[in-house]
């Protein structure tokens, strides 16, 4: 298989959820997102109702990819954190275990120092969870439902 799949399991997704919810509280953040380096949304917590999570995920991944490209030019391994300061909202981006991206959005109720401090603990937790998940993913039969896909199933997808 050329292109291994990433499989997200319920147990680990629940642990990720717990971890990011705790971060919203501890960092006094508006919201927190976890995004995969390829731009897939994984989890979020906080005031996310008015956020376009899918666009945010894709742009964050593009941003990290571009920054990673710059790092390479400077023979740096990666730039693991980014901070963008707005008038009201600020965004703190942390690359975790070179695998996923943690995005914290906060305002004047919090501070860069607090966010940076709290992100550290969450990063450690996420590294551990994603290692666990990668191990599970590598075992056979991750989502074996797809072995039975028929041509008909595929045609039905487009029938509207």
């Amino acid at each position: 298989m050329v292109n291994p799949h990433t499989v997200m399991y319920e147990a680990e997704l629940n642990r990720i959820q717990t971890s990011v919810s705790a971060l919203v509280q501890a960092a006094n953040a508006k919201c927190v997102f976890v995004v995969d380096k390829n731009g897939q949304f994984i989890a979020s917590s906080g005031e996310v109702e008015n956020m376009d999570a899918t666009s945010l995920a894709s742009l964050t991944a593009g941003n990290i990819a571009a920054t990673g490209g710059m790092a390479k030019l400077l023979r740096e391994n990666e730039f693991t954190t980014q901070f963008h300061e707005g008038k009201n909202a600020h965004i703190y981006i942390q690359l975790v275990g070179n695998r996923v991206i943690l995005v914290v959005i906060f305002d004047a109720k919090s501070s860069l120092g607090l966010v940076r401090l709290r992100v550290r603990k969450t990063s450690d937790e996420l590294v551990e969870i994603f290692e666990q998940m990668a191990k599970k993913s590598a075992e056979p039969g991750g989502g074996s439902a797809f072995a039975e896909i028929t041509d008909e199933d595929i045609d039905n997808l487009f029938n509207d």
Binding site: N3, H5, T6, V7, M8, Y9, E10, D36, G142, G143
Partner: peptide, 11 residues
């Protein structure tokens, strides 16, 4: 790299 979420049942 298909991304499969077993909890949300999404590919």
């Amino acid at each position: 790299m298909t991304f499969i979420n077993l909890m949300a049942r999404e590919i």
